[in-house]
């Protein structure tokens, strides 16, 4: 009885907190830093999506930290789960004909869509993380339809480390050619709203997408192939 009452009180408490959020106008009171980003961000960095320019350039070091956190998670999963000695792939039930032919039709579309998301990160909502997750979902569909799919874990970790390496290289290039670490103005800004604009943001987002996608595929492959 006491438990029920406590649950009810918690719900009422959160309702009181959350209900005023319905009337929030996202533009009413901004801090001075946010005002500066909104006023100068589009002219300074040339990206049509302001969130992208904040995440990649103004707060680029935070994004680097997030990718490092994801890398540590992958390493932890690979460290904790033991490798299976005898493969028990034939114990799993095979998928049906419709699922495998539908997969062979849909997986290229999913990969293409993931590439679209991370190369258009400076124009549409989306970016490296979202595109990487979409690509990992395509590989996941392959795993679900094909029980004997083998992963080359060495190749995955090589792709992941090289994309991380080039990400850091671009960041250091910003120190020499432009204003600071991870500055995107090392290339010309281009026309506002084109695909080839906003300096290094599309390149950084492509590297991020490849890195996140290979890390998530590594986690899923480790989960499947372990005991």
């Amino acid at each position: 009885m006491v438990k029920r009452i406590i649950i009810l009180l918690v719900i009422v408490f959160f309702a009181i907190i959350i209900f005023p959020l319905l009337k929030v106008d996202p533009t009413d009171s901004l801090s001075s830093l946010a005002t500066k980003y909104i006023r100068d961000g589009a002219d300074e960095l040339g990206s049509a999506n302001l969130v992208t320019s904040i995440v990649v350039t103004y707060r680029g070091l935070d994004t680097l930290g997030e990718v490092a956190v994801l890398f540590i998670a992958t390493a932890g999963v690979g460290f904790l789960l033991r490798k299976k000695k005898n493969s028990s792939a034939n114990k799993r039930r095979k998928s049906s004909e419709i699922l495998s032919s539908g997969t062979s039709f849909l997986v290229p579309i999913i990969f293409l869509f993931g590439v679209y998301i991370f190369t258009h990160g400076h124009l549409t909502p989306g970016g490296g993380f979202q595109g990487g997750v979409v690509i990992a979902s395509g590989v996941l569909l392959l795993m679900l339809s094909d029980v004997s799919l083998k992963f080359n874990h060495f190749l995955l970790s090589a792709i992941e480390s090289f994309s991380g390496f080039f990400y850091i290289i671009i960041g250091i290039l910003g120190l020499f050619l432009a204003g600071g670490f991870l500055d995107n103005r090392i290339f010309s800004l281009g026309t506002f709203g084109n695909i080839f604009s906003a300096g290094a943001i599309p390149i950084i987002y492509s590297l991020l997408g490849i890195k996140v996608g290979s890390e998530l595929v590594g986690i899923l492959g480790n989960l499947r192939d372990s005991e």
Binding site: R92, R93, K94, S95, L99, L106, I109, I110, F113, I117, T124, P125, G126, Q130, V134, S137, L140, L141, L144, V147, R224
Partner: peptide, 26 residues
């Protein structure tokens, strides 16, 4: 509408995963 595109292309994978779990194919 990009969010809806992501939904239409990704969310059926969750249902397929549940189905493959039920028939012991995961």
């Amino acid at each position: 509408t990009d969010v809806a595109l992501v939904y239409a292309l990704i969310s059926f994978i969750g249902v397929i995963a549940i189905a493959r779990y039920l028939e012991r194919g995961l």
